[in-house]
Each structure stands twice: as structure tokens, then as C-alpha cells.
């Protein structure tokens, strides 16, 4: 297989396979969660479930002081790379083109050097997170193989994207193909691991807020 054939494969059949697994996985899991249902609450409602739920989806993005102080490392580095993921995925011109091709809408991009800077900072943040996870005794004790897997599949698109953008070591068709392949790996793994939180965070935060709303207390 030549490198152009490799690139054509990841842009063609590879992308199709990964998209099918990703979409099917995410939809099935969300449908399952929604259909689990909840026990009817027989107590009288003291407030709105919906407004409290929606508010909590947003307010939980800000850590409370005590939690932040307890795990400052995880929060800071975690915040940085999540922001980096958001910017690099949604504001790099070639990525927006891909979204436009798939979902039909596009939006303005950020200059490539800005996205590049976010990538570098995110890579550092991810490395810090890994080092912290491996060096902290409690964290290491709690860590499973899946945690390392999800770290790896998140890290690979960043590092391959960075190398492809700067055209280091290999020729660019191979580098771009490797980057696309790493993203395909990420979206294949996503629905079946804790990476699913990229969708379920809305449900879980809403649920937390809704319980409090029903009881008429602050979530």
C-alpha cells in the first residue's frame, strides 16, 4: 500500500467504518440510558426539575472551591486540555471543512498558529496528567487499564496532528493519514469507554440538578 493509498483508505472506507461504529455506539448507549427510566417520585414537587437541571449542566463546569483545592492538578491540567480539544477540533480550518462536508454547516476558523499553540499546551497538559496519575499513589491505585487506553487515544490525535502540521520525520501523506487514523481510533473507542462522558455529562449533570430542583434546594 502506497502512502497515498493509505491516505485514501483512511479518508474513505476507514472513515466510514469508524463513523458507523461511533454513531451506532453513541446512539445505542444514549437510548439505553434514557429508556432506563426513573422511579416515580411520589413526594410533592417543590420546584422545577427542568430549570434547575439545565442550570446545573452549565454551573457544574465551574468546580467548587473545596473540590478544586483537593485536586488542583487534575482540575487545572484537565481544564487546559479540554479547552485545547475544543479549540483544535472545532476551530482549525481543515477540521471545519470536514464538519462542513459531513453536517453541512461551517463557521469561522482561528489562525493556524493559534490552534498550534493550543495543541502544544494541550499536549503538555496531557503529559502532566499522565505523570500525576502515575506518581500519585491513590490515583495509581484507582487507575485501570481503560484509563491508560483513553489517555492514549486522546493523546494520539494531538501528537499526530502536531507532527503532521509541522511535517516532522515522515512525508505528509503518511503523517496526515496517521492523524486521521488516530482520530478514527478515538471515535471507535469513545462509545464503549468512559470517553462517553463527552455526551453523557449533559445527562448526568441535568439529573443531578433536576433532583435538587424537585426538592426545591440549590444544586
Amino acid at each position: 500500500m502506497s502512502e497515498i493509498e493509505f491516505l485514501s483508505w483512511v479518508r474513505g472506507p476507514g472513515f466510514q467504518i469508524a463513523t458507523i461504529i461511533f454513531i451506532a455506539g453513541v446512539f445505542i448507549r444514549i437510548a439505553e440510558i434514557l429508556l432506563l427510566g426513573r422511579k416515580a417520585n411520589l413526594a410533592e414537587a417543590k420546584g422545577s426539575e427542568m430549570s434547575s437541571g439545565l442550570r446545573t449542566v452549565l454551573t457544574r463546569s465551574v468546580p467548587d472551591k473545596a473540590t478544586f483545592q483537593r485536586s488542583a492538578y487534575t482540575f487545572t491540567a484537565g481544564y487546559i486540555f479540554h479547552l485545547g480539544l475544543f479549540v483544535t477540533i472545532f476551530f482549525y480550518a481543515p477540521h471545519i471543512l470536514m464538519f462542513k462536508d459531513v453536517i453541512g454547516i461551517s463557521w469561522p476558523s482561528l489562525p493556524s498558529p493559534v490552534v498550534d499553540a493550543f495543541t502544544v499546551v494541550s499536549i503538555i497538559a496531557l503529559l502532566v496528567i499522565l505523570a500525576h496519575r502515575m506518581s500519585n499513589t491513590v490515583l495509581r491505585f484507582l487507575t485501570t487499564g481503560e484509563d491508560y487506553l483513553v489517555w492514549l487515544v486522546t493523546f494520539l490525535p494531538f501528537i499526530t496532528g502536531y507532527i503532521a502540521f509541522h511535517r516532522m520525520w515522515l512525508t505528509s501523506p503518511t503523517l496526515i493519514a496517521m492523524h486521521i487514523l488516530s482520530v478514527e481510533l478515538l471515535i471507535i473507542v469513545l462509545p464503549f469507554t468512559k470517553l462517553m462522558h463527552s455526551f453523557t455529562f449533559v445527562l448526568s449533570r441535568w439529573y443531578g440538578g433536576a433532583i435538587s430542583g424537585y426538592r426545591g434546594v440549590k444544586s
Binding site: 479518508r11 474513505g12 481543515p94 470536514m98
Partner: peptide, 9 residues
């Protein structure tokens, strides 16, 4: 180059 080659929609 960043677009999928087939109709993914």
C-alpha cells in the same frame, strides 16, 4: 484533504 472521500452524510 481533510474531507472524507465518500459521502459520509
Amino acid at each position: 484533504i481533510s474531507m472524507p472521500t465518500e459521502n459520509i452524510t
